[in-house]
């Protein structure tokens, strides 16, 4: 469960954002739509506490992130939040398998190869587990980053423009997989995008 309350953020006195409140229960999905420059990525970073808000609060599973000491936020985020970025980025020196296990390792969880293999089979890249990530197509890479985001079974999945660099076929597939995976682990799914193709896929929508 994720809930935000009266979030504001300022890069400078002239560039400030205030965001509508967002509420997303477990197994639900919210689509946040906005054109570029409306602070989509900023909002996503605030929700993941990659940025500290000027005012307001973000609550994930009964924990108010803004009250967490700085030293705890990284651990909390690793444990409870899975993030999918606009461009899929990986540790390029590592194989696909190791990139998945990295999520476990950095969250200090046991490294679960079986879960990695299951996810790979389900998301359709089981043959690529020993490849380097840059040897895969964009669509495949985005599916790997979905798998990475759910490796630790987080309570919240945040996706930043997950489909903007994909063609229609891959776009539909990625969205379907995102919803399916977050429902399977009982997570709240929040997708931030300007991609109009996603409009019809989500009933809960917030416009920035």
């Amino acid at each position: 469960m994720l809930q935000s309350h009266q979030l504001t953020f300022a890069y400078s006195p002239t560039r400030r954002f205030s965001f509508p409140d967002i509420r997303c229960n477990d197994r639900e999905a919210v689509l946040i739509l906005g054109k570029s420059g409306t602070g989509k990525t900023t909002l996503l970073h605030l929700l993941a506490l990659l940025l500290r808000p000027e005012k307001g609060s973000v609550t994930i599973d009964q924990t108010d992130l803004t009250q967490l000491p700085a030293s705890k936020t990284a651990t909390f985020r690793a444990e409870h939040v899975g993030i999918i970025y606009q461009k899929p980025h990986f540790v390029s020196a590592l194989s696909v398998m190791d990139n998945l296990l990295l999520a476990n390792y950095l969250a200090k969880n046991p490294q679960d190869k079986n879960r990695a293999r299951e996810l790979a089979t389900h998301l359709g890249f089981a043959d690529h587990l020993n490849k380097k990530t840059h040897e895969m197509s964009q669509g495949e890479q985005q599916r790997v980053s979905i798998a990475r985001a759910v490796m630790n079974k987080p309570g919240v999945i945040l996706a930043d423009e997950p489909t903007s660099s994909l063609d229609d076929v891959n776009c539909a597939r990625v969205v379907a997989l995102l919803r399916e995976q977050s429902e399977q682990i009982g997570a709240s799914l929040i997708v931030v995008t300007h991609d109009q193709r996603l409009k019809d896929e989500f009933s809960n929508q917030v416009n920035l």
Binding site: A48, L50, A74, T75, R77, A78, E79, I83, Y85, H89, F90, V91, S92, L102, A103, L106, A107, K108
Partner: peptide, 15 residues
């Protein structure tokens, strides 16, 4: 070149 990688690992919980 690996700046993004570092930020990524930090966002994934690395100290």
């Amino acid at each position: 070149e690996r700046k993004y990688e570092m930020a990524l690992m930090l966002s994934m919980g690395a100290g």
